[in-house]
Computed example of a mutant assay.
Amino acid sequence: MPDAQEGLFAAVDALLEEAAGTLPPPGERVRLREAGSLTQAQVAKALRVRRETVADWEAARKEPRPPKRAAYIRLLEGLAARHPVPEPTAAPTPPPASE
Rank of each mutant, 00 (worst) to 15 (best):
K68L: 10
H83F: 14
E34T: 14
P86Y: 04
V30R: 14
A81N: 14
K68D: 05
P66L: 04
P88Y: 06
K62W: 05
R61C: 08
M1R: 08
A81F: 11
E18W: 04
E6T: 12
E52H: 07
G7D: 07
R51F: 00
E77Q: 15
R74K: 07
K62V: 09
V85E: 14
M1S: 14
L38S: 00
A59L: 11
D3F: 15
V85S: 09
Q42F: 06
A81R: 12
A19S: 05
E87V: 10
A10F: 14
R69P: 09
T39D: 05
V54T: 07
L8E: 03
W57P: 00
K45R: 13
P88R: 13
P25Y: 02
L76A: 02
L47I: 06
P84K: 03
P96A: 15
A35S: 07
D13M: 15
L75H: 09
E28F: 00
Q5E: 15
R33I: 06
L75F: 13
R61Y: 07
G36F: 03
R65K: 15
G36P: 01
S37N: 11
P96R: 08
L38R: 02
E17N: 02
P26S: 09
S37C: 07
A44G: 00
A55P: 11
E28S: 08
A70G: 05
M1V: 14
A70I: 10
H83R: 02
E99K: 15
K68T: 13
A70H: 04
E52I: 11
G36D: 05
P25H: 08
A14N: 01
